[in-house]
Design a protein around this nucleic acid. Structure first.
Length: 581
RNA sequence: GAGCCGGUAGCUCAGCUGGAUAGAGCAACGCCCUUCUAAGGCGUCGGUCAAGAGUUCGAAUCCCUUCCGGCUCACCA
């Protein structure tokens, strides 16, 4: 248990002992002039027990006064209890986490969660619309692991939709002589005549033609249906295209530091679709409407409209609801899961509501398994209009990264970074700038995509965090070189080191709240706060030249904890740290 | 028409399970490098929390109404 949680529990025990049944909350004070922390529950208790809040507060205070973890307990205003921690308590806290910062983390209930994020479309380049899914999903994955959750991540590629038909059709026009287009083709191997670069042209070409040429579109639909039903020539070609495309997609995800345990896609659910449709049909849940197979997911408690879920088109082809449902079915068949989390654009919320309802209603998912949709805000352009993901002409993700990289390269201190490291360092800093800027806003709020935003390298940015963290590392290294050992924390000297300690105390709450909210913004905010608090301390105190040996040792212990904490938080956000910058 | 999300400093955004004096970064203006990496530190300026009404000891936060913006609502994903 973290020190903060322990202290909160101690106060809670006191309150309970006084006869008040409640769970109090210890929080950082809004009035630092009155105390470090505050408890605001006396007012609530006053209502519950019909007593004077100040009396209750004083009653609690009398016990807190006898506890040597707390000092300067005072009551203010309507019954605010202000509490500060004794230096002894703070020193114990630091010594408790100095060898293992996991002692400053409160694990959550252990379970297994599958995270579905990424969602890149095969045969299309990753573009800026894919940024948030990768960043947020990966960070949630890493956060969950730090908190003791077992996770499985799946990129869930879009490889089963109309784009398959479009690409295959386009290729049949460009390369009509490919064996897979010949009659009597029976699956023999052949060489794909295109490269990853060609692929980036083929889909947009076909996509824009399909918008003007209805026959073309219908033919693509027909081919899509045939691929879904294992037409040997088309399927073989599409699989080859998928493999080629995956290699390209993986490169970009690698740059973003998004690592997936599973590289599956919609098409991997194909094998389960007949089974799923049979289950639904046997239970009498599906029916034909306007030629399509649909299922009602409206519930009696609904007082709003809830459209039925569409499972099979009138032409026989399946839809994303079908593959999503079959994917859930397949996942639960193979893994023992407690939860499945989806991280996509929030505009897909209705779709997932429908899929989840269908899953529960049909018994494909038991009630004790939680399906969670954690959408992120829509990516808008600087004009405020939503970013269209399927119209082509949008900025590829790689291009965006390169753009930021150029800015980072310009600012690189060439006296510090060796020439052969400059390329790699610029890349690492650029990714930090991009990822941090992306994780900083609350998950669900809409998002204005502006390349200039990511090229901002001053202030509350990824580069600031990297720079500061590296500077601490450099300090610690220098201490080692000078043969200075630091093992114990003994002295709190002034407000600037105390502020660092008080900030460290808050870490476990930040992690748990972020986990609850499925948003990294609080972690991002917190690492900035910790870093800037430390930087103030750093600028005010010359650590290595400090003449008081105990103080120097204490300061180095503290610096080491901040360094390790920063490294942990950066890792949660999927941000790598260069050697020097 | 129905539903969802949003409107907080010039800009970008936190804060929203009700708590004391609403925060951060950027931008603007000043100050601090012979000394552990100045991509740093310190300071100043900046607000009728869209509007109105309500709930109560207390509202940016909860309820209602209105205005403004965005999104979604069966054969794309």
């Amino acid at each position: 248990m973290s020190t903060f949680k322990y202290l909160e529990k101690e106060i809670n025990d006191i309150v309970n002992k006084k006869g008040y049944e409640t769970d109090i909350t210890l929080s950082l004070s809004n009035r630092p002039d009155l105390g470090q922390f505050q408890v605001n529950d006396a007012m609530k208790l006053a209502k519950m027990y019909h007593k004077n809040p100040v009396e209750i507060a004083n009653d609690i205070k009398s016990e807190l006064d006898n506890n040597d973890n707390f000092v300067n307990v005072n009551i203010a205003g309507a019954g605010f209890i202000n509490i500060s921690l004794s230096d002894k308590a703070l020193i114990n806290f630091i010594n408790n986490i100095k060898d293992d910062i996991n002692n400053n983390v409160d694990k959550v209930e252990s379970k297994t969660i599958l995270l579905d994020y990424g969602g890149a479309n095969v045969a299309k380049a990753l573009h800026v619309g894919h940024l948030r899914s990768a960043n947020i999903g990966e960070a949630l994955n890493r956060l969950a692991k730090v908190l003791g959750v077992k996770t499985i991540s799946d990129v869930h590629l879009g490889d089963f939709g109309l784009q398959a038909g479009l690409v295959v059709l386009q290729m049949s026009i460009m390369y009509p002589d490919l064996p897979c287009f010949k009659e009597g083709y029976n699956g023999e191997d052949f060489e794909l005549p295109i490269t990853e670069e060609d692929l980036k042209v083929i889909y947009p070409t076909a996509s824009s033609r399909s918008k003007e040429d209805e026959d073309f579109l219908n033919e693509a639909r027909q081919i899509t249906y045939q691929i879904q039903n294992n037409h040997i020539g088309y399927s073989t070609l599409w699989n080859k295209v998928s493999e080629l495309s995956k290699k390209d997609i993986k490169k970009t995800y690698d740059r973003l530091n998004a690592k997936f345990d599973l590289w599956e896609g919609e098409s991997d659910s194909f094998q389960y679709i007949p089974e799923v449709l049979k289950i639904l049909g046997d239970k009498g849940l599906t029916y034909i409407s306007e030629g399509a197979t649909v299922m009602d997911v409206k519930e009696d408690s609904d007082d709003k409209e809830m459209p039925p879920i569409l499972l099979q088109k009138s032409d026989g082809a399946y839809l994303y609801a079908t593959t999503d449902l079959a994917t859930i079915y397949g996942r639960l068949k193979r893994f023992n899961l407690d939860e499945i989390w989806y991280t996509t654009d929030i505009r897909q919320e209705l779709h997932f509501t429908q899929v989840f309802r269908a899953a529960y209603k049909s018994g494909i998912v038991n009630d004790n398994i939680k399906l969670g949709f954690y959408g992120f805000g829509t990516m808008n352009g600087t004009d405020g209009k939503p970013f269209k993901t399927r119209t082509g002409g949008v900025m590829p993700l790689d291009e965006l990264i390169d753009l930021i990289k150029v800015e980072c390269r310009k600012r690189l201190n060439e006296n510090i970074v060796e020439e052969e490291k400059r390329e790699e360092t610029s890349e690492t800093i650029a990714l930090a700038a991009l990822k941090y800027a992306d994780l900083l806003p609350f998950r669900a709020t809409d998002y204005i995509f502006d390349p200039a935003k990511f090229s901002d390298l001053d202030g509350k940015t990824g580069p600031y965090l990297l720079y500061s963290t590296i500077r601490i590392r450099s300090l610690l290294k220098k201490a080692k070189q000078e043969g200075i050992d630091y093992n114990n924390f003994n002295i709190i000297n002034n407000n600037s080191d105390k502020d660092v300690i008080l900030t460290l105390l808050q870490l476990p709450n930040v992690l748990n709240r972020s986990y609850e909210a499925k948003s990294l913004n609080e972690v991002a905010e917190y690492i900035y706060k910790l870093t800037s608090t430390y930087n103030k301390f750093y600028s005010e105190n010359k650590i290595l030249t400090c003449e008081n040996k105990d103080l120097k040792e204490s300061w180095l212990v503290l610096s080491n904890i901040v360094y390790n904490t920063n490294m942990m938080l950066l890792d949660i956000m999927g941000i790598n740290v260069p050697e020097k910058m």
